[in-house]
Design a protein around this nucleic acid. Structure first.
Lengths: 233, 233
DNA sequence: TGAGTTTGTGTCAATCAGACACTAATCGCT
DNA sequence: AGCGATTAGTGTCTGATTGACACAAACTCA
């Protein structure tokens, strides 16, 4: 009997590294293994609603004000030992939250650096995670999604750090600053400043109205892999 | 009871217009209406395999040498009056085929211009078609997918026509030529020429090895809609 | 032969990305 | 108070790319 699941790849930036939220499985199959949070679709439930519900149940996060987009659907016949389970994966972007693991059923949820999670996840969740990271990298090129990694206010340096961490490549602070500030609607000045531990105070900004970046901020390196361009599982 | 379907948005360029392959439904619901070809996933069948099978069954096309990529998954609870049906949509790009409607069960398959199909399709297939067209437009910007609309050999003019028709905007032939020919691995010269009805003979090319375009060929106009960036149904 | 049409090369100015010099503002330390 | 260290922000220069367009090349048809 076929069942439909929803899995979540929740990404954030912590300690200068891209992290993913994983849970330790509390039951078979893959008891004790790491996996992406997720669960089965309920009768009459919309796909996105199921994603929001799982986000709350398994992690305690509120999906209403977070970025949540459908990633791809994974349906290899043997991907779940319990039987035929097709999974619709969602990509979620979260700011670095103070208590991300707090929640009712979320005792086992924890942030793990991407590099530590890769090749250690249950089911085909390694595939999902890889596709999620590549999607996020591409989104940073063509949309203002990077601001979703930041809190309500942030500095240009914070935003640059997001790009550097997600892309895993250093960026020139001056050129980045110029590009971001010249893109109307990307970020808006708040008029306030943040005094850092060290160095000159930086102006604080908030998200702008613009969703897409035109022109885009292209990665110098490589570009998207074919794998990610033609996701098909 | 939940069932999983696979639907196909098969696009091609005919008579200087973007066309989609639709079928006339032979049974309820939506008897007699136009719809995208598709069908239910079989037990133990891979998602992509189901797409390839439906492509052959309903249209007589061979998906092995065509572009076939997963588009998105549509799961609104009320999208199918028969009950809960979640559908994984695939995008297929085909060259203008001599006998596209020939096939066993494909008597009712026909090519329809996008503009004629929009707002006339059964289920939520209008949504799928809209997303498919937007995906194709974006693919042309960042990948060499345009060659999938052409036959084994084609001229730069043919390729430009694909861009103009899919993007629905005229392009400067000289600048387009320069950009395409300066992109290594996009197209390869065959050494042959095609004598047209009118005008100077044009050199014939075939697809190159490159899959991605770096730098991309960006649409001057608009850019992708937010709708298409965050497909979520 | 000449008009018409499409292909292909070349030019030019404006724009953009990358590299980098330099100033500004704050810290801790002496 | 003064100095070095560090981060923020502005400005400059160069090379590459884009868009607009002139013009030559190759062919058909009348």
């Amino acid at each position: 009997m076929l069942r439909l699941a929803v899995d979540l790849a929740i990404l954030t930036v912590r300690n200068n590294a891209l992290h993913v939220l994983v849970i330790t499985r509390g039951k078979e199959p893959f008891l004790g293994s790491l996996a992406l949070p997720g669960g089965f679709l309920r009768a009459g439930e919309d796909l996105r609603a199921a994603a929001v519900r799982e986000l709350r149940e398994e992690t305690g996060l509120d999906g209403r004000d977070m970025h949540l987009e459908q990633l791809a659907t994974y349906g290899r016949p043997d991907r779940d030992p319990r039987g035929r389970v097709v999974s619709v994966a969602y990509l979620t972007i979260a700011p670095d939250l103070p208590a991300p693991e707090a929640g009712s059923d979320a005792a086992s949820a924890l942030w793990v650096p991407i590099s530590k999670a890769q090749s250690r996840l249950a089911f085909d969740h390694d595939d999902i995670l890889r596709d999620a990271v590549e999607r996020a990298r591409t989104r940073l090129e063509f949309t203002t999604l990077a601001t979703a990694f930041c809190g309500p206010t942030f500095t240009v340096g914070d935003l640059r750090k997001v790009y550097e961490v997600v892309w895993d490549q250093p960026l020139d602070p001056r050129n980045f600053s110029r590009k971001v500030l010249n893109t109307a609607g990307f970020i808006e000045a708040t008029g306030q400043k943040r005094i850092p531990q060290l160095g000159r105070p930086a102006a604080l900004y908030r998200r702008g109205d613009q969703q897409t970046l035109n022109p885009p901020i292209l990665r110098s390196n490589g570009g998207p892999e074919l794998e990610a361009i033609s996701v098909d599982r």
